[in-house]
Design a protein around this nucleic acid. Sequence first.
DNA 1: TGCAAACCATAAC
DNA 2: GTTATGGTTTGCA
Length: 198
Amino acid sequence: MMEIYILNFDDVWFSVACDCEQIAASSFGSTQQSAIGKILEMIPFDVPFQVFHEPSLFARSALANLKSLYDAKKINLDFSLALSKLPAYTQKVLKATLQVPLGYVTTYGALAKAVGGGPRAVGNIMASNPFAPIVPCHRVVRANFKIGGYGLGGFRVKAELLSREKQGFSEPKEIMVNGRGLEVFPVECVLKSLDILF
DNA sequence: TGCAAACCATAAC
DNA sequence: GTTATGGTTTGCA
C-alpha cells in the first residue's frame, strides 16, 4: 500500500509518496490540489494508495526536509529514495544530480558528460524527476546559463528557488561523481543572466 | 541572434 | 521492433 502524505508550510504544499519507509516520489505546489495531482501522476495506476493528512513519523521528517530544501537550507541527504525500480541510466543521472551542492548549478551537457549519454536524455530525466525537490533538478540549467524549463511551476518557480539559494560563491569548481568530474558553477551565473534580479 | 541538424535514453505504440 | 519526444547543444550563416 502506497501512502501519500501532504502538508502545508508557509503557503506551500508538500507531498510525499511513501512505500515501506522509502520515498517513492515527492513534489510540491502552491495549492493542495497541484501537490497531490503531481504526485499521483508519478505513481503507477495499478498501485493501491491512500492519502493522509496526519503524517507518520517517517513522512513528517521527509516533509520537513522538503520544506528545508525549499528554503535553501542544508539537509542531511541520507534519504532512502526508491530508486531501484527505475532504469539504470535514470538512477545514475538522479544520483549525480544529488551531488550538486547548495549554491551551485550545473548544466545538462556537463551532467551528460559526467554520466555518459547526451544532454537531451538528461533533460528528459529531469522533466520526469519523481523526487522534486529532493533531487535538485532546479540546479540544472542550460549551457548558456539560461534557466531552461521546469515542470512543477514553470521557469518562475525554478528562478525563485535558485535566487533563494544564493551563497555568494564566485568561482566554478569540479566535484567528483562516480569517478568522473562534474563541473558546477555558482548560482549567481544564472541569476545574472536573468532579466529579473531579485 | 536565429535556425538546422545531431544527440540519446525512455516511453508509448 | 519502431517511432516519437524532449527542461539540449553546437555550428554556421
